[in-house]
Design a protein around this nucleic acid. Structure first.
Lengths: 154, 154
DNA sequence: GCTAACTGTAACGATTATTGTTACAGTATT
DNA sequence: AATACTGTAACAATAATCGTTACAGTTAGC
């Protein structure tokens, strides 16, 4: 299980909250708590899917490839996932009838269930994520500031 | 990603097709194409969830713990999966506000999407799986027999 | 044109998860 | 007592993931 998907959401969400870019991979790596190369590896996949654009050189960085209301989470997921394969599949190498038939069925079930998950992801846009996050940020920063004031007073 | 889930379905499906048991872990291992210990490891989890029973000693083996119409695939999935965590989560170790808030949100989305997948699995019982498989077995065995007849004739 | 600040990607090692296997103790049947 | 099972620990092999370094390519601004 890769953490590419959370990283992808972090990239897209961070970009949206900053008005579309540019942001460097270093900035994103620091807020996510990892190395810039890890971020760039995910960005590489997002770029191929057209979800972001990048510009080399000084002052460059990462941009949203589309308006945040035109990007949904399923696209982000599929961009960073080779084949949607969350559930392990039945091995199909065997020659016998029983495991082959059972295997096919299990694989169908898994694909079907994954489809349900993807449809759920499809219903949420990055824009909506950003909206929810903004409200939470206000709350979190207020709380964080209050606790600092408290600390200073004690 | 473990292949515990396909193995679990294989165990439950195989048991159902044989009228509930008993089947030895060796029989299951051979039809699945793995080692008996691998099967028993999965069986251990299924047993704890009450989906199967096992009997030691000669003539022993594995039995269905309930009627196949009373076991659905979600139960099988949850029995072999510690926490339903198909999608990687945002790391929550950081101290800063931004990644924490984003992380919470991402985790909620993931849980929500996984819920959709689980509900899909819940809608299919082992009995229904067995019914579908029976029809396919008939077809597959017919085809397999025909091709052998053909081979013998040539 | 030079330098600084970026990206893109290959390569490597450390860590961890998964799987197959052996081994052996425990239990039921005959 | 012998046989045929289960249950589980332990270990090695393999593969996936992640962080890191290294370095080539690109752009902006002086």
């Amino acid at each position: 299980m890769t953490s590419d998907f959370p990283i992808a959401l972090h990239v897209l969400g961070f970009l949206t909250s900053r008005g579309g870019g540019p942001l460097t991979s270093d900035q994103m790596a620091q807020t996510y708590g990892t190395n810039a190369v890890v971020i760039r590896r995910v960005q590489s996949k997002l770029r191929k899917a057209g979800l972001i654009e990048t510009r080399c050189g000084a002052g460059g960085g990462c941009f949203l490839g589309r308006k945040p209301e035109d990007i949904n989470m399923r696209e982000a997921y599929e961009a960073v996932t080779p084949e949607p394969q969350l559930l392990a599949r039945h091995p199909m190498s065997c020659e016998e009838v029983v495991p082959i038939v059972v295997g096919h069925f299990v694989n169908e079930i898994c694909s079907d269930a994954e489809q349900a998950l993807l449809e759920r992801l499809e219903s949420i846009t990055i824009k909506e994520m950003d909206k929810t996050l903004r409200a939470r940020f206000r709350k979190a920063f207020r709380a964080s500031r209050d606790s600092q004031v408290k600390k200073a007073a004690s």
